[in-house]
């Protein structure tokens, strides 16, 4: 069986159109407070380019192609890993004052439990 993916002109245009529309709609609903994490998050998502880099590197047959392919994976991996680290750090900081008190209670319950046991 052949599972290789063939994408020709119009199919590609349909994919691009639907993806662009999805991106536009998803981002349209994000509150301004999340704009920076979002920019960073979308920056992380295009780190998927590292997969393309792997494809290029594994198909390399000359020294030049190997060098450029290595460069592609190196940069792509940097994009993906760095983007994730930064976005994750930013998002972990968001909490409501409701959460804060909830957390406080939770912590309190935890500390009181050993005494009860």
């Amino acid at each position: 069986m052949d599972f290789s993916i063939q994408i020709t002109g119009f199919v590609a245009l349909y994919i691009f159109m639907l993806a662009a529309f999805a991106g536009w709609v998803i981002i349209g609903h994000v509150p301004a407070i999340l704009h920076t994490p979002l920019m960073s998050g979308s920056n992380f998502v295009h780190g998927i380019v590292v997969v393309g880099g792997m494809f290029a590197l594994l198909n390399a047959s000359t020294m030049q192609e190997q060098a450029i392919g290595f460069f592609a994976v190196l940069l792509g991996a940097g994009n993906a890993a760095g983007g994730y680290a930064v976005t994750d750090r930013m998002l972990a900081m968001f909490q409501t004052s409701g959460h804060e008190t909830h957390r406080g209670k939770h912590g309190h319950a935890k500390s009181s439990r050993p005494k009860a046991v």
């Binding site: 994408i7 590609a12 994919i15 993806a19 662009a20 991106g23 998502v45 998927i48 380019v49």
Partner: peptide, 15 residues
Amino acid sequence: GNPALMIAGMVVGAA
């Protein structure tokens, strides 16, 4: 020929 790259890339492009 990788649709995942096409979709992720274009979603970010539009966003």
